[in-house]
Write a protein that binds this DNA or RNA. Structure first.
Lengths: 202, 202
DNA sequence: ACCTGAACACCGTTCAAGT
DNA sequence: ACCTGAACACCGTTCAAGT
């Protein structure tokens, strides 16, 4: 994809980025189980020890991959936000962006939310999750200020909305819900979330 | 734990069960990454090739482990169901049972909902998920018959409720939400689910 | 039927050595 | 600074052989 003018057999300009890109390719094509450092080095054209210079161990590469995943997801969600939209429409757009990413990056999503990340990366990971949910939080507080969302800790309410969304994403990523069904359910999901499962009186 | 009268060094009465139990122990204590067939065979006291007789390969053992997990989860949820209870109380009890299991078996839960199960087991797995959600589905249809839940495809509504719940469970299992916070949120979660996030009139 | 022990190909990680 | 190549300990899987 990237054709440089220097056709050297090894010695990338940016081996780290090349490794991450290659890792994500095999993650997408063959799944996490098929991801081996040695094969990754092989297909990238370096020795099997070269990745050590950029990632302390395999887990460090997986952690870095998860972080780039959150960055992309955050961009997707933020890009779908339009504060001028009415509440339900705005929330639906945010939810759809989240689910779209989840459906398009199922294996990556599983990695992003995997247990067993390095403890020293977990803070960055927590911040990354927060960052992705920021537009949801903003929407909740905006709507609360207008009296359109019930009172209560906005973080708590964001968690509920985010959980409902992530639950659908997780069901889809784990293969228990077809991608189309997940995406098609967004409208009803948001509607029921806002208006409740019990009937409303006139 | 199980002391038989036959102190033979090998040759279990039920190697298959012993392997599953041992696998779940290391899953709980050291995580999925530390689970190796060879070490499992070692600690179980058989040769490293013995497990092949009971599980075609490592994935087959993981699949079997996931299925036992769903069986236990299903029992826990069914055991917490009381159709005589009022709607919100009943749903809260079901939700708490699901979350309790998720919190107490975080690594197992991740395995249960992992991608990359053998295709030939995915049907059993789908049935297992359905089985665990059956009480939720029953509750929805019961309540719909009484006019206590909005009309609409009960499967769809069950999916939403289940997704909200599973989202919290997943956040907790992945370390983004402390176990206590997840369990403590059950009441509000169910309340907001039933009554909606927008204010109700009069 | 059930298990063993050797063999094979592969893996992650480490480290002295090269440029 | 960045990468190589050999080495080490481990792994999953297979298979002839034992009881």
């Amino acid at each position: 994809m990237l054709s440089m003018s220097e056709p050297r057999p090894y010695h990338h300009g940016d081996l780290r980025a090349a490794l991450l890109a290659g890792a994500e390719d095999t993650l997408r094509d063959k799944g996490a189980a098929a991801l081996s450092l040695r094969e990754l080095a092989r297909t990238t054209g370096v020795s099997h020890a070269a990745p050590t210079r950029h990632f302390r161990d395999k887990q460090a590469l997986l952690d870095a991959l998860a972080l780039t995943g959150f960055e992309r997801m955050t961009r997707a969600v933020h890009g779908a936000d339009d504060p001028a939209l009415p509440l339900e429409t705005r929330l639906t757009a945010l939810a759809r962006a989240y689910l779209r990413f989840a459906v398009d990056n199922a294996a990556l999503l599983e990695l992003m939310y995997a247990r067993k990340h390095d403890p020293d990366i977990s803070e960055q990971l927590a911040a990354a999750v927060e960052g992705a949910l920021t537009p949801f939080f903003q929407l909740i507080t905006d709507a609360q200020a207008r009296g359109q969302i019930v009172e209560g800790d906005p973080e708590h309410i964001t968690l509920l909305a985010g959980a409902a969304l992530h639950g659908v994403a997780a069901f889809s990523a784990s293969g228990h819900l077809p991608a189309e069904a997940a995406l098609d359910s967004v409208g009803e999901l948001v509607h029921h979330l806002l208006h409740g499962l019990t009937p409303r009186r006139g």
